[in-house]
Design a binder for these strands. Structure first.
Length: 354
DNA sequence: TCTGGGGTCCTAGGACCC
DNA sequence: TCTGGGGTCCTAGGACCC
């Protein structure tokens, strides 16, 4: 018996939930996103079925482009509450196993398990999820979260794959650095400029050299990832959000100052209400403005005292807005807040100590 | 391909203080 | 006093992920 980390990843989660509601669409190219109107500008696909992908459609693609690529595609509106509900049912199934479960978004979870047959456990999880929710998932098995996460990607669709320190090098060494979880296109390009193209090359790089180019934390961390290392602790306590935000991309640019201020005030009020509902205090307010064509700027300020008062948050956001040069047309406005850390039960407050 | 929305974490530079 | 060095806080931006 030994410890394993499993990563459960639902296959095509959003599309799969939609196909359960619309079984007649099975086998057809389906694209989900926005309000489901593919003629709307500035709206992108949340997901696309395998049939739609065959036409070159992928998530993040503007719906108008998707429509051009596949005029016969079915476009459905995004329905977050339905995905939330489906996710809750899946996570409940996972929790019935004698394992630790760490939920990682709508369609993923890490599992900590002690067994000498992780493949049998993985198959039992897949079977239970399928029986109870009609959804399929891929399961990755690893020594840590990083390995398990990459393994579930290799297992898709609906498969099981084991990626541990034993087969890490043979599986990963020849792959590009952005195959690693946490290295994206930007970092991969910078690494390539240093002559580091593959996972093997990154694993053999000098940590001090990486630190000079990517900072004291990130540089050595990239090499660590290339060696197949990673976090192995499964945290079952609910995640405590660090902050919250709301933003809106407008179909038509905003140019009128009063109009812009009105939208910022509305977003600020919403965010303050969200915080209040979540029982959290706001410590800092940020305003985000995206100008056309696509230039994004943020300004922020720390509140003198934490609050959830909508009027204070609104006034702060409007004062921050005054610091922007609003001579260019605006395509997006956003308001974000940082929360204070919630009072912790196991950490006595200063007052309690006195 | 004219590029959503909601998150997290890290870095760098300036202000300020001793 | 044409000048050191460290520590902390704050802000803006970047990168990544789903």
């Amino acid at each position: 018996m030994r410890d394993w980390i499993l990563h459960v990843d639902l296959d095509q989660f959003i599309a799969a939930v939609e196909l359960l509601r619309h079984p007649e669409l099975r086998g057809r190219p389906v694209v989900v996103g926005g309000s489901g109107d593919p003629t709307q500008p500035r709206t992108v696909a949340a997901t696309a079925t395998y049939e739609a992908r065959e036409h070159g459609i992928h998530s993040g693609m503007p719906l108008r482009t998707a429509l051009k690529r596949c005029p016969d595609a079915i476009f459905l509106p995004s329905d977050p509450p339905a995905y939330e509900a489906a996710s809750t049912r899946v996570m409940a199934v996972l929790r019935e196993f004698p394992v630790l479960v760490e939920i990682w978004g709508w369609d993923e979870a890490f599992i900590g398990a002690t067994t000498d047959d992780p493949e049998t456990l993985a198959a039992a999880i897949q079977q239970a999820v399928r029986d109870r929710t009609q959804l399929t998932c891929s399961v990755g098995i690893g020594d840590n979260k990083h390995q398990a996460k990459l393994a579930s990607g290799l297992a898709k669709p609906a498969g099981i794959h084991r990626l541990t320190s034993d087969n890490w090098a043979e599986t990963m060494n020849h792959r590009p650095t952005d195959a690693l979880w946490g290295i994206g296109a930007r970092t991969a390009k910078k690494l390539a400029a240093l002559g580091l193209h593959t996972v093997a090359q990154l694993a053999a790089a000098d940590p001090a050299h990486l630190a000079r180019h990517f900072g004291p934390t990130n540089g050595p961390w990239y090499r660590y990832l290339a060696l197949g290392k990673g976090e192995a602790e499964v945290v079952t306590t609910p995640w405590i959000a660090r902050g919250h935000s709301r933003e809106t991309t407008f179909q038509h640019d905003l140019t009128d100052r009063t109009d812009i201020a009105h939208h910022v005030a509305t977003l600020a009020t919403q965010v303050a209400h969200d915080a209040d509902e979540a029982g959290r205090q706001i410590a800092r307010v940020s305003v985000k403005v995206r100008f056309t064509p696509f230039l994004t700027r943020t300004r922020q300020s720390k509140l003198p005292t934490p609050t959830t008062d909508p009027a204070t948050v609104e006034q702060t956001a409007l004062t921050i807005l005054d610091r922007f040069d609003l001579t260019r047309p605006v395509r997006l406005l956003g308001v974000a807040v940082d929360y204070t850390l919630p009072p912790s039960d196991d950490q006595p407050t200063l007052e309690a100590l006195e």
